[in-house]
Computed example of a mutant assay.
Amino acid sequence: MPARILVINDEESILDLFRMILESEGYEFCSSTEAIENVTAVEELDPDLIILDLKLGMQEEGWLTMQKIRMYPPTQKIPIILCTAALEEAREQEETLQDKGIPIIYKPFDVDELLEVVQRMLPFPDTKSPSRKKQAP
């Protein structure tokens, strides 16, 4: 089973780009164009990795979404990659994010860099492995 990657970004064109890149590499792609209000929706999707934009709409709702994911026990261990064009805001938090194991990819990004970080962040090395398992409550 391929790794399932959830991309949260408010721009359809960016989501289309991520879909093209990730599906061509054999990943299962799912997406959301808005901040996750109810984090149980992330739990139900059961992604192996989340790629999250810092700014969703005119607000920095990506921070709030990331905090919700990290604070909810069933989703707190899902790896997150922050992918953003909000350079100043992200750089202010870059050291803290790195300490928490959350890499930042700045837009515009290099496809090879994105894929290298995705592979590194996946919880299992073989993305086609059926090793994804739901954790018991």
Rank of each mutant, 00 (worst) to 15 (best):
D110P: 03
P47F: 06
G62Y: 01
E113A: 10
E60A: 11
R91I: 11
R120S: 12
G57S: 11
R120I: 06
M71G: 08
L82E: 03
L97K: 02
Y106E: 04
P74D: 06
E34C: 10
F109C: 06
D53W: 02
E95F: 09
L56K: 01
D99K: 15
M71L: 13
N38P: 05
G101R: 02
L122Q: 11
E94Y: 06
F124G: 15
K55Q: 14
P79V: 08
E113P: 05
V42K: 02
A90M: 06
M1F: 06
T127Q: 13
K100R: 14
Y27W: 08
L114F: 05
Q59T: 06
E25A: 11
K128D: 13
I81Y: 00
P137K: 04
L114M: 11
N38L: 07
A90P: 15
D110E: 14
L87Y: 11
Q67M: 13
E25S: 13
D99M: 13
E25M: 05
P130Q: 10
S13W: 01
V118I: 13
I50L: 02
G101S: 09
I51R: 00
A90Y: 01
L22C: 09
E113C: 08
L82I: 04
L122T: 12
P130I: 08
E116N: 14
K100L: 14
D48K: 06
F29A: 09
G62K: 00
G26T: 08
L6R: 04
E34P: 02
S13Q: 11
K77D: 15
D126H: 12
G57Q: 05
C30K: 09
V117H: 03
Q67R: 13
S13G: 02
D16S: 12
S31I: 03
K134F: 09
P137G: 07
K128Q: 11
E43F: 08
K100P: 07
I5H: 01
L56H: 02
Q135Y: 08
A90V: 03
L115P: 01
D53A: 10
L17P: 04
M66Y: 06
L17D: 05
E95A: 15
I8M: 07
A90Q: 05
W63K: 01
C30Y: 01
Q76S: 15
E44R: 11
W63T: 00
K134T: 12
K68I: 00
M58N: 13
E12V: 14
S13M: 11
I104K: 01
S13A: 12
L17G: 06
E94S: 10
E113I: 14
M20R: 08
I14T: 12
D110R: 10
G62F: 03
M58V: 07
P74L: 04
L45A: 12
K133I: 09
G101Y: 04
S31F: 10
P79Q: 05
A86M: 15
D110L: 10
I36S: 04
S24N: 14
G26Q: 07
V7S: 04
L49T: 08
P2A: 08
M1I: 03
K134R: 14
